[in-house]
Design a protein around this nucleic acid. Structure first.
Lengths: 346, 346
DNA sequence: TTGAAAGCGCTAACAA
DNA sequence: TTGTTAGCGCTTTCAA
């Protein structure tokens, strides 16, 4: 015999009150006689009652769930898990999830992990929200021109983006003052005494990569160095190493490098070591993000820190507000300030 | 005016049929006249209908959701997100999530990410399942003596573990033939011509770490090397570096090392390089897992591969079976075979 | 302050 | 093959 789980009705019977009263106690609604509260709590305890989330969601029209979506483009549309696997390899996401979880947990909520690297996957994200499985989405795009934000915005499905989309979309986002971050890196390199500085950029179709390059160039120019050697990378260690190698071939005298993220900075360090250059003595290297890669690299990376946890937590908060939003809140943007973290590489 | 989303009723009216018929079409139940199917599909299209998941869950008693739980012990019980952040930093989890997602996605399901590093968090996981927010849990413990499996088993909440628990618990799990994996590593080192081989173990309270050590020792003994120098690590790069340093001090002649995971192998490489030893010429290094750390390390690691994606996907499948299980399925164990992946470090 | 009762949107047993 | 109907377990008016 399978005992079905206790319901409100069971608790009510135990306590000798109505379902409504038990519901009030469970939900902490005031106006319940303390003595009765006591009795009800007792009955809940004895029956081992746990409110059924589906029933609650049905009437409140809220799943109390949000989706954490990693969106991008698939290298191999065949493999269902490959994109997920690769995305999570990015040390960046550890801090993102930490921030989101930090906000959600005190509210007894947990993120649903979704990946949107194909048109079909994007439609599934939209469907998931439309059918009320999740109340909204936190979107992290790994590529520019991601169609997902516009798709959700068109259906008025609540969502908040990480980083400004490359084409304007009426959606709330959280971002970093990238140019300011690049300035920090440039000035540190200059202050160190570097005279021949180069930079490894991210994919230049991404606004963030663009802005970091712009900020770096601006600052170098202000300090009398208008022509900075540039090599474009793809935000991966391998691409960073390749870019560094190119840079070294064309500009053997380089004594300082700003890489637009930590993974590429690490790759650059590998390439540099391979060529027998010491870090930071021969060539100083500055990264970006302060992801876990920054501390596990050899040497540990001097880098521009993004307050990822705060940014991610803020995204969750903004989403929450949008979900509860009556009247409908207007899209906004919250920009965070970067910070220089000095370690061994520069 | 806020238009409420269309319901079955709306579609039924549009199509001029009953709710039940629409439901049948939506759920692909046979016995529906093709002509009517056509009409209904049309109505669905026109209304933009999406089935409400809460309503469906309420009646089917199934959330169509599973929890992916990372369980362990907190360093800092204060910070809600720190554990999450640190756990996801482990390159191991990328492949785990990839495997789980690979199984779930074709079924239109997505994992809910939970962390259980304190007693309170563990209770929340149980509560989450009890109230039907998720139908079951996939548990990945980072520490031995994790109380979570027993907690869930006691309430008969469906779950499947990664790795055999250190104390027996009547729960299904998936594991690797660790001793076999260690044997592969030992034989590779021996074949390479290493004569003075040492090993860096994981935390020895973990069965997996124990088994890898045992397997390694056994094989070395069979080849006439009964006394293998051992240093215990904590599965992190830093602990691997420290262990390597200790090993080097006490046994300067070491020419081969087996580290019980890739992170420690990477740490060992760093320590080795620092002491001026070349890899693999002076000292050969073999890791374990074949996590993303194996390919991003310098040099790339020769390692014992765990088929993580398959293992994780199998966990999801077993959980699914347990959830649907009528009659209740007995706990089982599925053990996978490791494989040696030869790269540059040995 | 409490209870009665009306749904929330769906599935499934049963009848037609 | 299709429709009718009875809930699933909860929240929330509305009355008392």
């Amino acid at each position: 015999m399978i005992r079905r789980p206790p319901t409100l009705e069971d608790v009510a019977r135990q306590a000798g009150v109505s379902r409504a009263t038990v519901s009030r106690v469970v939900n902490g609604v005031r106006n319940v006689d303390p003595a009765i509260q006591e009795v009800v709590r007792d009955a809940i305890e004895r029956t081992g009652y746990a409110p059924n989330s589906a029933a609650r969601a049905l009437v409140t029209r809220r799943a109390q769930t949000i989706a954490l979506v990693i969106s991008g483009a698939a290298d191999d549309p065949g493999d269902e898990g490959a994109f997920a696997s690769r995305a999570l390899t990015d040390p960046f996401f550890g801090r993102v999830v930490g921030g989101v979880v930090g906000f959600l947990r005190p509210r007894s909520m947990y993120p649903v992990l979704m990946f949107a690297e194909t048109a079909a996957a994007r439609r599934e994200v939209a469907a998931y929200l439309r059918q009320g499985s999740a109340d909204g989405a936190l979107i992290f795009s790994t590529h520019a021109e991601d169609p997902l934000p516009a798709l959700l915005a068109a259906e008025r499905l609540p969502c908040v983006l990480f980083a400004r989309p490359s084409a304007p979309v009426p959606v709330t986002y959280v971002d970093l003052a990238h140019r300011e971050g690049a300035r920090l890196a440039a000035e540190h390199l200059l202050t160190r005494g570097c005279r021949r500085v180069a930079t490894i950029t991210g994919p230049l179709d991404l606004p963030a990569a663009q802005d970091r390059l712009t900020g770096f160039r601006e600052t170098m120019e202000q300090h009398g160095q208008p022509c900075v050697p540039v090599a474009e990378g793809g935000f991966t260690a391998a691409s960073g190493a390749a870019a560094m190698t190119r840079l070294l071939t064309e500009h053997p005298g380089v004594d300082g490098v700003f890489a637009a993220n930590d993974m590429m900075a690490r790759g650059a360090c590998d390439a540099l070591r391979e060529q027998g250059r010491r870090i930071p003595d021969d060539v100083a290297v500055v990264g970006f993000d302060d992801s876990s890669a920054a501390v596990t690299s050899q040497p540990r990376l001097t880098t521009v820190r993004q307050p990822m946890e705060e940014m991610a937590a803020t995204m969750a908060r903004l989403l929450q507000e949008e979900i509860e939003g009556t009247p409908r809140t207007e899209p906004t943007a919250v920009i965070f300030d970067p910070e220089l973290v000095v370690r061994e590489s520069a």
